Amino acid sequence: MASTYSFDIVSDFDRQELVNAIDQTQREVKTRYDLKTTDTEIELGEDNITINTDSEFTLQTVHTVLQQKAVKRNLSLKIFDYGKIESASGSRVRQVITLKKGISKEIGKDITKLLRDELKKVQGSIQGDAVRVSSKSKDDLQEAIALIKNQDWPVALQFTNYR
């Protein structure tokens, strides 16, 4: 039996689910009567999504469709970091949506500080872009998960490697 138990807090998303959500969005854009003639392009890059369309109104509509498809595929909307809307050639607009992945140092510090202040028997440590939480009791780890879930963090958090 292990003397200490632990789990990792990470901020990640299922890339294949994102690919599927974007594919569904593209199909809906091509078939919807109000978006069919806009010649909208949605491109998935390594760490961003680029939307190129004919107006800001159409861009907002595409955002709505993309968000609906992402939610249906259990993707958090916190992974999307919407950039500035830019003018593109031919009176079109372009927007780059950065995909947020990993926990920043500041958020990691906030998580470990919250654990230190609220739960005395739990230790949190920052390990790269994840936070490892350890304790001698599984019950304390369950309390830590509940405490972290009750907070509103600027990134989507998942709990992995529970052992």
Score class of each variant (00 low, 15 high):
Lys105Asp: 14
Ser76Leu: 05
Leu35Phe: 04
Lys121Trp: 00
Asn161Val: 00
Leu119Met: 08
Lys113Asn: 14
Thr38Trp: 00
Ile22Pro: 12
Val133His: 05
Asp34Thr: 10
Gly124Cys: 13
Ser134Val: 11
Tyr82Asn: 03
Glu28Asp: 13
Thr58Ser: 15
Lys69Cys: 04
Val19His: 09
Asn150Glu: 14
Glu43Asp: 13
Ser137Tyr: 07
Tyr5Val: 06
Asp8Leu: 09
Ile85Leu: 08
Val65Leu: 11
Gln151Cys: 06
Ile79Thr: 03
Gln151Asp: 09
Thr31Gly: 01
Ile22Cys: 11
Thr58Leu: 04
Met1Arg: 02
Asp81Tyr: 00
Ser135Phe: 05
Ala146Leu: 08
Val155Gly: 01
Gln26Ala: 02
Ser134Pro: 06
Lys138Leu: 15
Ser91Thr: 02
Lys113Asp: 13
Lys72Phe: 14
Glu28Thr: 11
Leu66Asp: 03
Asp129Leu: 11
Gly102Arg: 14
Tyr33Lys: 14
Leu66Glu: 02
Thr40Met: 10
Ala144Met: 03
Lys121Ile: 04
Thr38Gln: 15
Arg132Asn: 06
Ile145Ser: 13
Ile9Trp: 01
Thr53Asp: 13
Phe159Cys: 11
Asn48Thr: 09
Arg15Pro: 09
Gln60Arg: 15
Glu41Trp: 00
Gln24Tyr: 09
Arg94Gly: 00
Asp54His: 07
Asn150Met: 10
Val62Leu: 07
Leu18Val: 09
Thr58Asp: 08
